[in-house]
Computed example of a mutant assay.
Amino acid sequence: MPKAKTIYVCSQCGAESPQYFGKCAVCNSWNSLVEQVNTAAEVKTGLPAARSRRSAKSPTELKPRLALTLDQIEDHPQARLTSGYQELDRVLGGGIVPGSLVLVGGDPGIGKSTLLLQVAHQMGAATRVLYVCAEESGQQVKLRWQRLAPGDGSRGASANGDGKAQAVGRQLYLLPEIDLETILMELESLQPTVAVIDSIQALYYGALTSAPGSVSQVRECTSALMQVAKRTGISLFIVGHVTKEGAIAGPKVLEHLVDTVLYFEGDRFASHRLLRSVKNRFGATHELGVFEMVDRGLEEISNPSQLFLGNREERVPGVATIVACEGTRPLVVELQS
C-alpha cells in the first residue's frame, strides 16, 4: 500500500511546498498554505522526450502523429446563442459561444445566482438548460424564483394554457447535487445546450481527500467540466466566490482554464449592478453591462447615461458633462465640483 504524503498547497496561487511556511514563497501571501494528503503513489516513467531521442529519425522521415496544420482543420461556423438579455450578450461579445466556459464572480448577495437563474429561465423556453444548485435544494431554488417572478406561469405551467410557460417548465432542469461524478453523468445523459454550476467552490470530487473549496478540488472539478464542455459543445456558466480582497477564490489556474471571466459589481445596499468582463477569448474585454435590482429580480438598463446625468432643465454652476468610454460603449457622465 502506498505511503501517504503530506504537502502544503497555497490557496492563492496553487504552489506546493513539502513543509509549512507562514508565507508563500511564490505569491508572498501570508497564512495561505493548506495541508493536503496525497495517497496515490507517484509512478516515475521515462520522459517522452528521452524515448524520442533514442528512436531519432532522419529529417525526411519525420511526420506528425496527431497534429494538423491550420489548412487541414475543417471550418465549422457556429452561431452564438442569445441569453435573453442584451446587456449580458454585449459583455460576452455578441452572445454565448457553444462549448465555452464562463466564470461569473462577485460579492455575496450581489445577484450572481439571480442573474443566471433568470438567464436559464429565458433560454429554457427554446432549448434544454441544466441548473446545478450545489448550495441550495431544488425546492429552495423554486421558492426563490417564485419570489422573483410571482406572476410567472412557471409556478404552475399546467394550470394555464400558456405554451411558453409549459415549454420553460419542460426545458429547464434543476439538479441539487455537489458530487462531481453525478453532475458529469447528468451532463452526458441530458446533453443540455447550456448548464449553470452554482457554485464551483461547493463541488466535491471523491477521489481527492481535501474538502470542497480547496485548491485541488476547485482545480480538478473545473478541469473535468472543461473537458466535458469542449467535447460535447455544452456552454457552461460557473459561479465563483470572491475573497475579501475582491479576487475569485481558489487557484489562479481557475481563471486560466475558463474562456471568459465576468465580475458582477455594485453596492449590496444600492439597486444598480455592473457586469464587467476582464477576460474574453471570443470578444473584447472591459465591456460593461448595467442592470438594476428590483423587487422582481434584475432588469436591464438600456441607456446607462441616464443614471449619470442630473437635472438638465436648469443650469447649475460648477457642473460639467463628459463622455467616457467603457469597452465599446460611450457613457455620458456629469461631474460636479
Results as ranks from 00 to 15, higher is better:
Tyr8Thr: 03
Cys10Lys: 07
Gly22Leu: 14
Cys27Phe: 10
Ser32Phe: 11
Leu33Thr: 08
Ala41Pro: 15
Glu42Ser: 11
Lys44Ser: 12
Arg54Trp: 01
Arg65Thr: 15
Arg65Cys: 08
Ala67Lys: 15
Ala67His: 14
Asp71Ala: 15
Ile73Tyr: 14
Asp75Cys: 06
Gln78Thr: 11
Gln78Lys: 14
Leu81Glu: 05
Thr82Asn: 13
Gly84Glu: 13
Leu88Gln: 00
Asp89Cys: 09
Arg90Gln: 05
Gly94Thr: 14
Val97Trp: 08
Asp107Tyr: 08
Asp107Glu: 15
Thr114Tyr: 11
Ala126Ser: 10
Arg128Leu: 14
Arg128Tyr: 07
Val129Leu: 08
Ser137Cys: 02
Ser137Trp: 01
Ser137Gln: 03
Gly138Pro: 08
Arg144Asp: 03
Trp145Met: 08
Gln146Met: 13
Ala149Lys: 01
Gly153Gln: 05
Asn160Gln: 14
Gly161Ile: 03
Gly163Leu: 08
Gln171Phe: 04
Tyr173Met: 11
Leu174Ala: 10
Glu177Trp: 12
Ile183Trp: 11
Leu184Pro: 02
Pro192Arg: 04
Val194Ile: 15
Ile197Ala: 06
Ala207Val: 10
Ser210Arg: 06
Ser210Lys: 04
Ala211Pro: 12
Pro212Val: 02
Ser216Cys: 13
Gln217Met: 11
Val218Lys: 00
Glu220Asn: 10
Ala224Tyr: 00
Gln227Phe: 05
Val228Ser: 05
Phe237Pro: 00
Gly240Trp: 05
His241Leu: 08
Val242Trp: 03
Leu262Trp: 01
Gly266Ser: 09
Arg273Gly: 07
Asn280Ser: 06
Thr285Asp: 07
Glu287Lys: 00
Met293Phe: 07
Ile301Asn: 15
Phe308Asp: 12
Gly310Cys: 05
Glu313Val: 07
Val319Phe: 04
Val319Glu: 11
Val319Met: 05
Glu326Gly: 02
Gly327Leu: 12
Leu331Thr: 09
Val333Gly: 09
